[in-house]
Amino acid sequence: MTDPTPGAVLRGAVDLSALRSRANAPAAQAAAQGGGQGETARADGAAPLVFDVTDESFGQVLELSRTVPVVVDLWAEWCGPCKQLSPILEKVVTELAGRLLLAKVDVDANPQLAQGFRAQSIPMVVALVAGQPVPLFTGAVPEQQVREVFAQLLQLAAQHGVTGTVPVGAASDDAAEAAEPALPPLHQEAFDAIEAGDYARAVTAYEAALQQDPRDEQARAGLGRVRLLQRVQNLDLQQARDAAASAPLDIDAQFAVADFDIAGGHVEDAFARLLDLFAQLPAADRAPVRERLLELFGLVGDSDARVIRARGRLASLLF
């Protein structure tokens, strides 16, 4: 069966194979016994949803991700944006009441994990689904964007059969419902559509939100992410690469592979492909490539070093 998109994210986005062998050290988490559910041990019998993880304990976290998706927050004490983002991640994970776990990695204290995840800048947030990495985002992002990304992650996890939960007590669902602030109606419609895997409906909702308020940056960011998922959900990666290789100046063929690269965390590869295409095209044909580059820049984040470098090259090609 062809991998569902964004299943392409799971194909080699980050090489964690060297870390798997470290599973025999004491772990922060333990894989669940029976019922397809994950549960973590704590002295009071409750299940912690947020926990620290180290180079030594990471192997068992990989195993835990086979039953429940694990979000990994790479941070450092000196990192100001990390201190803005971490409370948001903890809040949203807690409200999801055991459907996701949050593993916190201090990159200064755990250099092997930092290297394994290729953490060139922090905060960096990735997920583990069935033992495989799923790049999510880099940098501090708004709470609503975190919610939308986590909704997409849960959908992806379900597609790969990872649907376990960690028991957190009977009152958790009520508490989460009470704590979660109401979203604007169109944002809520998009959120629900993403959770259901209906990307077309999510696009329509975000577009309507932008018609109401063209300055709605959260809607704009959500629209870009959903459009990416929508574009790649029915594509086959190998077929896309073959088509791009046989037609180097075919804009649609190059777009398809660049989308796969972005979804898989190969950001620099995607930018290089489109910038090379831009350089080779006649001036009259360049506009769609520039527009796609700007869209992908927005997905990755304007402050990301890879975006800054790519913008510089684009400017040099333009002028």
Rank of each mutant, 00 (worst) to 15 (best):
Asp3Leu: 09
Val9His: 08
Ala13Phe: 05
Val14Arg: 13
Leu16Tyr: 09
Arg20Gly: 10
Arg20Ala: 15
Ser21Tyr: 06
Ser21Val: 04
Ser21Pro: 09
Arg22Gln: 12
Arg22Ala: 09
Pro26Met: 04
Ala28Gly: 07
Gln29Ile: 11
Ala32Val: 08
Gln33Arg: 03
Gly38Glu: 01
Glu39Arg: 14
Thr40Val: 14
Thr40Tyr: 11
Asp44Gly: 08
Gly45Asn: 02
Pro48Ile: 05
Asp55Gly: 01
Ser57Trp: 01
Phe58Ser: 01
Ser65Leu: 00
Thr67Tyr: 11
Thr67Glu: 13
Val72Ser: 10
Leu74Arg: 07
Leu74Asn: 05
Ala76Trp: 11
Glu77Asp: 14
Glu77Ala: 13
Ser86Asn: 13
Glu90Tyr: 12
Val92Pro: 01
Arg99Thr: 10
Arg99Ile: 06
Leu100Val: 08
Ala103Thr: 08
Lys104Thr: 09
Ala114Cys: 10
Phe117His: 11
Gln120Met: 08
Val129Arg: 01
Pro133Ile: 04
Leu136Tyr: 07
Thr138Asp: 06
Ala140Ser: 15
Ala140Pro: 00
Gln144Pro: 02
Arg147Ile: 03
Glu148Gly: 13
Glu148Asp: 10
Val149Gly: 07
Leu154Ile: 02
Gly161Thr: 14
Val168Asp: 05
Asp173His: 08
Glu177Ile: 05
Ala178Met: 02
Pro181Trp: 04
Ala182Tyr: 05
Ala182Pro: 01
Leu183His: 10
Pro185His: 12
Leu186His: 06
His187Leu: 03
His187Arg: 10
Gln188Pro: 07
Phe191Leu: 01
Glu195Trp: 14
Ala196Val: 13
Asp198Val: 07
Ala202Asp: 06
Asp213Cys: 03
Asp213Phe: 02
Pro214Asn: 03
Asp216Ser: 03
Asp216Ile: 09
Gln218Asn: 12
Leu223Pro: 01
Arg227Glu: 14
Leu229Gln: 09
Gln230Asp: 15
Gln230His: 12
Arg231Ser: 15
Asp236Thr: 13
Gln239Ser: 11
Ser246Cys: 03
Asp252Ala: 15
Val257Thr: 08
Asp259Arg: 12
Phe260Leu: 13
Val267Cys: 09
Asp269Pro: 00
Ala284Ser: 12
Asp285Ala: 14
Pro288Glu: 08
Pro288Asp: 11
Val289Cys: 00
Val289Ile: 03
Arg292Gln: 11
Arg292Glu: 00
Leu293Gly: 00
Leu293Asn: 07
Leu296Arg: 09
Gly301Ile: 01
Asp304Ala: 14
Arg306Thr: 14
Ala310Thr: 10
Ala310Lys: 04
Arg311Ser: 14
Arg313Lys: 06
Arg313Ser: 03
Arg313Ala: 08
Ala315Met: 13
